Amino acid sequence: MSRTSVNLPDLSGRTAVVTGANSGLGLETARILAGRGARVVLAVRDTAKGERAAAEIPGATEVRRLDLADLASVRAFAAGWKGDLALLINNAGLMAIPESRTVDGFETQFGVNHLGHFALTNLLLEHVTGRVVTVSSGLHRSVNRIDFDNPDLEGRYTPYRAYGQSKLANLLFTLELQRRLDEVGSPVLATAAHPGYAATNLQSRSENRLHDAVLRIGNRIFAQSASSGVLPTVYAATQDVPGAFFAGPTGLFVNGAPGPASRSRAALDTEAARRLWDLSEERTGTTFPL
């Protein structure tokens, strides 16, 4: 599938932040946006890797440090931001890793994939003029609720349960963010996307050799490329879609041209979305600023 599957507008004069942009889907997202004229800020934990990635991207880029596993780093990134921000692409994520904790004591997948982006969005939202796009996953369907009593899954942790919960949280966050934006009459849109089955290094960090080997084989046989996997994200960021829109590949085998994607009933639960927002505010110390 080519990038022409999305009719991209001219993004000259606009600024985009892409988290986790030093490899995989984030790098390809940054490459596409910069190719259409956007000034792209690669928000990355390892700035040396970020600089190497930026050197591969034709167009205007900048590298800034952001560690989503450390709320102090998130606050520092946001505090240093000046000027308008057309697109905030909440892309960075971890998948199916061994149990661990962030600097602030959160289960790492929930902390990085959801809470770090929740805090970043609230801290930057006054600058955002266009859209907040959060990358979820079809595996949000693997869980049917957020464990509000035990969000860190203490005593119940499995790598994929934690991943599924964090990806469900991404969609509930998008739903509640759009409700709040609508409530204050903001023109900003909150959207979400999932890449389908895309071959990236996300599938090789489980620290389980057999698991990683199986996924590497699957990547070679079944997965689409990272450059195709980012098209739903670009679609959600640039096309004429409603608030809380969820984009994904429309092919039978979780690939193909981007378009509207279905989500689970749990991901449409407005009460759970509000409850998650309250929990996230409490854990991150950040609030909706508009």
Rank of each mutant, 00 (worst) to 15 (best):
S2H: 02
S2P: 00
T4P: 00
S5L: 15
N7F: 01
G13W: 03
S23H: 06
G24C: 12
L33S: 00
A34I: 01
G35T: 09
A38T: 01
R39Y: 09
A43N: 05
K49P: 05
R64H: 01
D67Q: 05
A72S: 14
A76G: 06
A79E: 07
W81D: 00
D84Q: 04
G93N: 02
S100A: 12
S100G: 08
V103E: 15
G111W: 05
H114R: 05
H114C: 05
L115D: 14
L115T: 07
G116I: 02
F118V: 04
L120Q: 09
T121C: 10
V132I: 09
T134P: 08
S137T: 05
S142F: 13
V143S: 11
I146Q: 01
F148N: 00
D149G: 11
N150S: 13
P151E: 12
P151Y: 04
Y157C: 12
P159T: 00
Y160V: 12
Y160W: 14
G164R: 04
Q165N: 13
S166C: 08
K167M: 06
L172Y: 02
F173E: 12
P187S: 11
H194E: 09
T200Y: 12
N201I: 05
N219H: 04
R220F: 08
A226K: 06
Q239Y: 06
G243T: 04
P249S: 07
A257E: 15
A257I: 15
G259C: 01
R263V: 15
R265T: 07
L268R: 15
A272G: 14
R275K: 10
W277S: 03
L279C: 08
E282H: 08
R283P: 13
G285M: 10
G285D: 08
T286V: 12
